[in-house]
Design a protein around this nucleic acid. Structure first.
Lengths: 298, 298
DNA sequence: AGCCACGTGAAGAAAACTTTCGGGGGTGGT
DNA sequence: ACCACCCCCGAAAGTTTTCTTCACGTGGCT
């Protein structure tokens, strides 16, 4: 049997380059060529078979295998696996270069990476900044509500609809309004046991503030989901849930990240309510699931 | 546009877990066992040979190879390399603390953290799995479109509306339909230079497939945004954009993460188109911004 | 100069991977 | 309820890749 240099039994994880340097002096010329290739381009070498690497380095398969052994692996196969791992690490290591803004001439791959990164950031920010006390109060109000009205226009209108759709699924009587007139008309109907929710990024969207004010004055519990907790909308809100505001740019309108943030808040509301009303929510959820099943094709 | 799922793009690096979830439904039982093992313990499986993995999962070598193929690799050897890379990445990465499911009695703070984490994960998965070639083709089609119709019902309907709202803002003629009858009626109008987009998580929502089919048969360029790229909807899609599928649970319906994933894809489409049509998009964007300004209160 | 030791690659053996093929089980139709 | 069909699945044959053996050549040392 041969002796295993490189110390103990376990093969090298990421310290491969170092090991190559350490062991290089004890290597023969052709083995050095192999080791050099391996250390220089792990990703490239990982794609090669023994024969391929042998040809690339102008040596033979036997030499490649010998080198692998010297580096502490049972054979070339395992060296290759380690190489793949190393390559992946290096790959992921130089990831966080995506903080830059999206430019007009960015390739699509960059656009995808940047958008995903930004939205992830927005989520983290929102979660960190969300006031769980306010959230809890809002959930309590919703869980006991006779009726829920949600106001939102433009991009926030979709979030409002999303929330009402979800609440409907767990048995609440929820309605989303994006028509300001109808919203006000309905707000008049609200009373003590009801809840009104206004969703507005700017915190100053008149079309949304107005119905909230009406609901507030009629004694309903009011909730504002806004990126500007100091904005006019908070005036009429019993509970304010703050969404985060990400930097925007020409190619990345504020609506994009505010939407992500709003949706997270809305999801939290939903799950919170579903928890509190689990007895009724669970059957309602599965019922709506069942009801939709036959709408799918084989 | 068939057969090679995973989108013809080069094999996945880190998006493997996501890909497994995406493709799992279209797998046979024994393939699922293999996929599960692979996704559950990348490091362990990377150490195994085909035969070993076959024995571990109680299947045959042939099945293991078939699974590797389905996941987008030429064979098991390459899957194994990817696995090694993934393992290394996980190793170097930190320990995700909040992987647990949401329970009925979780405090709200946990709910917020878990939801945020899950959605971040969904974003990362989606970005990693998104086929930029297909995306590019879709963007090109959109940028040159005379008219764009977007179909989506239920939760996906909101995404469809979000997309059409955005496209309208940069000067495209876009329309979202959630009424299946109207959608079909409108689809008949589409012709060669037009684009139809279907958004459906399940990939088998009849109400959405039907208008896409009509558009397809009338010569429009068709795009499917779906979590099941092998589903019926892809049949009538020139370009398929895959959204990722996160694990779901009772308190966390699939609609939630699929929505996040769909929105990212839709945002990418939007930014892509905005880039291509920058000359017209930029002024249109600021014009719509101006127009809304006076709707805000002091 | 001759001998020895070691590095090296060619070729064959073994292992791992891939493909083919036919049986078994489930499904849909009659 | 029965039958026919199709598709999933694993056994085994076939192919590629990896490992081992062995003999040759080179260079140094006596």
């Amino acid at each position: 049997m041969k002796k295993t240099f490189g110390g103990g039994a376990p093969p090298a994880p990421a310290a491969l380059a170092a090991k190559v340097r350490t062991l290089a002096p004890s290597m023969t010329r052709s083995m050095q060529r192999v080791a050099e290739a391996v250390a220089g381009d792990p990703a490239g070498c990982a794609a090669l078979t023994v024969t391929g690497l042998a040809e690339l380095t102008g040596t033979s398969e036997a030499t490649v295998v010998r080198t692998a052994r010297l580096l502490g692996y049972p054979g070339y196969r395992d060296l290759r696996l380690a190489l793949a791992g190393l390559a992946a690490q290096q790959q992921s290591g130089r990831a966080p270069a995506v903080t830059a803004d999206i430019a007009v001439d960015d390739p699509l791959a960059d656009v995808v990476a940047k958008l995903a990164y930004d939205e992830q950031q927005t989520l983290a920010d929102t979660a960190a900044a969300l006031d769980t006390v306010q959230l809890g109060a809002a959930v309590t109000a919703l869980a006991g509500a006779r009726r829920v009205d949600v106001y939102g226009v433009g991009a926030s209108g979709l979030v409002a609809q999303d929330l009402s759709q979800k609440l409907l699924r767990i048995g609440l009587i929820a309605h989303a309004h994006s028509d300001p007139h109808l919203a006000v008309t309905n707000a008049v109907q609200l009373a003590a046991k009801d809840v009104a929710i206004a969703i507005t990024h700017s915190g100053s969207t008149g079309d949304v503030i107005e119905p909230l004010r009406v609901a507030f004055e009629h004694g309903a519990t009011t909730i504002a989901v806004t990126g500007r907790p100091d904005g006019p909308v908070s005036q009429y809100a019993d509970h304010v849930l703050t969404t985060s505001t990400a930097r925007e740019s020409e190619l990345r309108p504020a609506a994009m990240s505010s939407r992500t943030s709003q949706l997270l808040v809305v999801d939290c509301l939903f799950v919170g309510v579903a928890q509190r009303t689990y007895e009724t929510a669970a059957p309602a959820l599965s019922a709506s699931y069942e009801a939709l099943a036959h709408r799918h094709r084989p």
